[in-house]
Write a protein that binds this DNA or RNA. Structure first.
Lengths: 399, 399
DNA sequence: GTTAGTTTGTTTGGCGGAAGAACCAAACGA
DNA sequence: TCGTTTGGTTCTTCCGCCAAACAAACTAAC
């Protein structure tokens, strides 16, 4: 066992555990009175009072009297203080970067976009920071606690981008350093994998995940990436490469993939794969640029080719999700990406596959759903990298 | 987030965390002096002394003076007390059950076997308990702390066997109750999945796992089961069905499997699959009962058919291990079962597949190895279910 | 052998923080 | 208006960790 990573307990650690637990309860369950916190946590009322008074002093939390219709003194509800701490968010996608400023409760204050494809990276970062500063000015935000950046590559715990297929130049570039150089006052700068960060965002801000402690978040786009959450914690993997379900072989000897292998899931179920299959079905017809949204739109209006294509995507999605269920056995698989706009078409196909392959009398225990964060999941993912640092986090586990 | 499962911190919890941490250090690193414990844990010397004196009083630990050649007072080394707490172990396999009595340090005191196939289950349990009691008498052990039973099915946290394909009658049978009825004085009775328990045993007693905190343990036998360990904790899964890699599809539309699906990993890489392929290669020749050990034996002596068959098994093992690496990204994949006797034949094949499919410049980070517990892994797995309860276990995690 | 220096382990006092009990506060209702 | 109920605070006690001083046991150097 890796004893060196253990944390010895002492009074201060205990305090920070309990503080984090209470802060987290207020965040997720607000409005919430002190007695309710005591009831849930098992902490003594007096302890809760003491910790909450600290949070009030730090201005992280505020009180509001409300009247319930019950007998007895009315509870003083506690809320998370908004408009106080903000996080900047940058998501790098193949061609477009999205930027945002986000409050600690996950509400997005403002967004902007930027092309990533051309120009040098230092210049790009400078522009991105400029845009974020502009968003701050526009919304009368004096300063940010930090900036989180997400990208569809493997990122190590030291914020270094280890691999990023669509743009190799990112791999030897110290983003963290570059951001800090442009904005030295920032307290937190954090870089993460986009799908993993989305999973974090779903954990922190997703309505569906409110009752889930273990789920797999699948981000379908040009590629398929995913983030695994187990017992409220993100699974990083020994080489920070967990959740590479997109490169699990689903068709032996199938289509070639950039990863060097054949038949990878993402060659069949990603947006690009769907569009490729759509174009193949239309072969002979016009072969212009089609977007996934357009295909889904025409499917909704009854276009048979579109419907057939999307059903096929549902089938392939099902194959990969079956693998996820077999290996991780999560309480839920949460899908995100434009493909979820075609939910009514793909969902029945996914379930059909899972009934054959993965569910064995456990249908009720495993939910397949789409992310409640919809198109914001990537941005919130980046923001969560910063927000989770603001609410510093200890926990006790027993086994 | 699932707040109800959180544990609030207080002085007593702190004590039990630190006690467990120290006990665990003594267990894994013995002999170890107090100062070393203080250094590793970060606890104050006085705290370590206080906790250790408790452990000495409980007789869980003993001291021994040794002289090192260094300057200064010689350290007093601490050791785990043996011959004091014992666990009974029962592993149910398809035809044969193995029984054992095991000391808390994982040393096996005595073993026995019993046929599982015929007779009613109550009678079987009675016999098994009788055998274990006999082992105790023979080794002058007055009583056991508990009994752990493992089986190749899905077991819920309440010790109920939810599914067990080879013998459906186990599924509605309350093993726990039956054991307690036969031996009411037992403090601990625990039932677990065999592969998951093996993973636990590897974590607790495996020499290879000494430096690993995240690995996947793959138990190859009639079927293929596995246990996932992440950050020193076993991954149970939302429905206690994690690690079902054996039923991941590796050949689309391949061989039919009892699980209702086609092309499952275990239909290609399990011992039965290997033997089936061996028999097919020999078609026309004598078709008697062959054991895997015999095939491996003949391969070692140069039999070409055997070698080819085993190489093929290595290839199929590689396919499944690639999936494991893609999904979990563990620090190691640890194989166990008779097939590991052919390590020199299968290992190069496995690595060949992984180089093509799973490693992408990360060869050095992921170890593929066989279990150091060899044929005892199943028995130690069952024993570990009890032993881990003896060393009750709290830990703090930060994130 | 004597003394200085070093390392291990214990003792003592202080302090942070949780628990518990008693107490205060505010609402309702009859 | 006064008991009842529920929410929150105050005060005391107790637990367990820490720091520092101290004791013990050993090496090395003179």
């Amino acid at each position: 066992m890796n004893d060196e990573s253990f944390i010895a307990g002492n009074a201060k650690v205990v305090r920070s555990i309990n503080r984090a637990m209470i802060l987290n309860l207020i965040r997720t369950k607000q409005p919430i009175p002190r007695t309710e916190i005591a009831r849930i946590t098992g902490l003594n009322k007096s302890t809760v009072s003491s910790i909450v008074s600290g949070l009030l002093q730090e201005n992280l939390v505020y009180e509001q009297l409300t009247s319930d219709q019950n007998v007895g003194r009315n509870p003083v509800n506690l809320f998370l203080r908004k408009n106080r701490y903000y996080a900047g968010a940058i998501n790098i996608d193949r061609e477009l970067a999205t930027l945002a400023v986000v409050d600690v409760d996950g509400s997005i204050i403002g967004t902007a976009t930027l092309r990533t494809s051309q120009g040098d990276l230092h210049g790009f970062i400078r522009q991105a920071i400029e845009e974020i500063k502009r968003l701050c000015r526009e919304n009368e935000i004096r300063d940010l606690e930090g900036i989180g950046l997400t990208i569809g590559g493997i990122v190590d715990p030291g914020n270094r981008i280890l691999s990023y297929r669509p743009g190799k130049r990112w791999e030897d570039f110290d983003v963290c350093e570059a951001i800090k150089k442009e904005w030295p006052e920032l307290k937190i700068v954090s870089v993460g994998n986009d799908a993993k960060s989305c999973a974090l965002a779903e954990l922190w801000f997703g309505s569906s995940a409110a009752n889930l402690s273990s789920f797999v978040f699948v981000l379908v786009g040009h590629a398929i990436n995913s983030g695994i959450v187990i017992d409220d914690r993100l699974l990083d993997g020994g080489s920070q490469a967990s959740g590479e379900f997109g490169h699990i072989t689903i068709i032996e000897g199938g289509e070639e993939c950039e990863c060097g292998n054949n038949g990878c899931w993402e060659k069949y179920a990603s947006d690009s794969a769907t569009l490729k299959r759509y174009r193949e079905r239309l072969s002979g017809a016009k072969n212009g640029k089609v977007t996934l949204k357009a295909v889904i739109d025409s499917a909704v209006h009854g276009n048979k080719v579109s419907i057939a294509t999307l059903k096929e995507t549902g089938y392939y999605l099902g194959l990969g999700i079956a693998n996820i269920i077999r290996s991780i056995d999560p309480k839920a698989v949460i899908l995100s990406g434009n493909i979820t706009l075609a939910w009514d078409i793909i969902y029945p196909e996914i379930i059909k596959v899972l009934k054959e392959r993965a569910f064995s009398g456990r249908e009720r225990d495993i939910q397949i759903m789409f992310s409640s964060l919809s198109e914001n999941s990537r941005l919130l993912g980046a923001a969560t990298l910063v927000i989770k640092e603001i609410f510093d986090y200890y926990r006790i586990t027993s086994e």
